[in-house]
Amino acid sequence: MKVLVTGANGFLGRHVVATLLAQGHEVRALVRPASNIERLGWGSDVEVFRADLRGGTDLAPAFEGVDALVHLATQMVGDDFTILSGTLTGTERLFTAMAGSDVKRLVLCSSFSVYDWTAVRGRHREDSPLATDTKSIGGYAVAKQGQEELARRGVAEHGWELTILRPGFIWGRGNEDLPCIGQRFGRWQVVFGPRRRLALAHVENCASAFVAVLENDASKGEVFNLVDDDEVTAMRYARDQRERTHNTTTLVRLPYVVTRFFVSCVNFVSRIIFDGRGKLPSMFVPVRFELRYKPLRFSNKKLLEKLGWRPPLNYDACLDRTYATAKAPKPKGRNGLAA
């Protein structure tokens, strides 16, 4: 199969490209005109198509001779509006070009952020309620919901065969500091809800899932949540990270109920003082706070049942790959000089 991959040189994209190649597929990688891809070592294995989805280059040629699109590209830099407009206009241009081609197969990378985390209880599943308050969830989540909507329109209007993957917090080498742990204050790492299970999704496991759904017709028309299999708590990850990076961070436990109560108090005070029109930092917006920290159970049950897919790497293997290059600091001699 020849696959067009957007965001191909991004954190997730480069692993998806590598996994596709390893599975014997051909890859056309869509990367921005100014992106430096030399360090990726793609060589002649990967056909590179340079374009910015938001404007400029005609995207129609990118679909010529292609069997499927894996759409990973998302505007990640900038304020909420920049992320929203960059992601949506880029996706719109991409899908318009796809509509003019023969390509029908689409795998879209969405996100956990599309859910209404204040309404999710117990086990988080694919049919958990989606967020509807677009003013609260932030530009990234609105953009991801918009991408899903545009893709579904493609299904309705052009008969596309769509699979949506919603990964949890994607981690791996280059993205070790996760926002779902807590807050860092200098050398203090406050861990919110230390016994809470994290919705981790290692980047190599994610790449494996993207290729698995692409190869399996049973995934067509489906939405899948995507997380690692091992149940890793916030405190365990924080400890492992400290150990693997040999830093001297002090870990401070703060029960989830305490932090959530504090968030509620801040919201209550804001509502009283500003008559409901107050604007709080994202950490104090309940739906965004709970996206990061709410204690829930996560699983790949649907991916396993429908496709028989399991993450290829367990937690320890993920740790090994993520922190493989971290070295212990050199011992210091007298006067603070290296011995």
Partner: peptide, 12 residues
């Protein structure tokens, strides 16, 4: 010019 931006803004 972008339908999705016009629609998203109109919805908001």
């Amino acid at each position: 010019l972008s339908p999705v931006m016009a629609e998203t803004t109109a919805r908001e």
